[in-house]
């Protein structure tokens, strides 16, 4: 899932300071699951903004909505009347949702209230960790299912660097050395030979290095 952190309130207030009436959007998708951008988060943010603006002697009118997903046109079509009637839309969706809004409502100011951070999963209640960098050429098949692209600070392909000690990363003693974990995992499943081969340099064209990517599923196209 996509994980995001709500932006600091001060930054949000600054970004909407010129507006008198906004639509505050939550998103019912990924960011509801990570608590930062769902209906509840939207309600809380609306209250915080209202209080801050009232205290500053510059009250603001806030309309709220939380579509199933902001990142699909069919779910934001129905917001047209609400969007037409406000100065700007403040969205707690991820960056994909913000851009879906900007592309569909070309004349409207759309402002993000969330920093989209990574693709990951909850390792414990209300704690998420990154697991995938979306590099477009998955290596998990030979790394024992643990990703060195998203989880190694150097994105190494041929095992741990010289800074790996006791399973801990040299960059941050709170972080595991994922290559140490890959080693342990491959040992456990009897596949240590996967680490013997010199892995070729990665072809980064499938990642973000060649610009925007596109994915098509021909069989399902109308």
């Amino acid at each position: 899932m996509i994980v995001g952190d709500r932006k600091p309130l001060e930054e949000i207030l600054e970004s909407i300071k010129d507006f008198k009436k906004i639509l505050l959007l939550g998103c019912g998708g990924c960011v509801t699951i990570c608590f930062s951008g769902g209906e509840k988060a939207a309600g809380l943010l609306a209250s915080q903004i209202s209080i801050a603006r009232k205290d500053a002697g510059n009250p603001i009118e806030i309309d709220e909505a939380t579509p199933t997903r902001v990142c699909e046109h069919e779910f934001i079509d129905e917001l047209k009347d609400k969007i037409d009637s406000v100065d700007a839309v403040l969205s707690l969706s991820c960056g994909v949702g913000v851009q879906t809004l900007a592309e569909q409502y070309e004349d409207k100011i759309i402002i993000p209230a969330l920093n989209t951070t990574f693709m990951g999963y909850p390792v414990e209640h209300a704690v998420w960790e990154e697991r995938c960098a979306g590099c477009g050429d998955c290596v998990l098949g030979w790394t024992g299912g643990l990703c060195p692209i998203s989880r190694c600070a150097k994105k190494l392909l041929n095992g741990p660097c010289g800074g790996s000690v006791d399973g801990v990363c040299e960059v941050d003693s709170e972080k595991e050395c994922i290559w140490h974990s890959i080693y342990d995992r491959l040992k456990r499943i009897g596949k240590l030979e996967n680490l013997e081969k010199v892995r070729d340099p990665k072809d980064w064209r499938t990642s973000t290095n060649a610009g925007q990517r596109k994915s098509e599923f021909k069989e399902a196209q109308l």
Binding site: P201, K202, D203, W204, R205, S207, N209, A210
Partner: peptide
């Protein structure tokens, strides 16, 4: 110039 124009198009920029 972007690396896709050159002789190492698979490079990370």
């Amino acid at each position: 110039d972007h690396q896709t124009f050159g002789n190492h198009p698979e490079a990370s920029n």
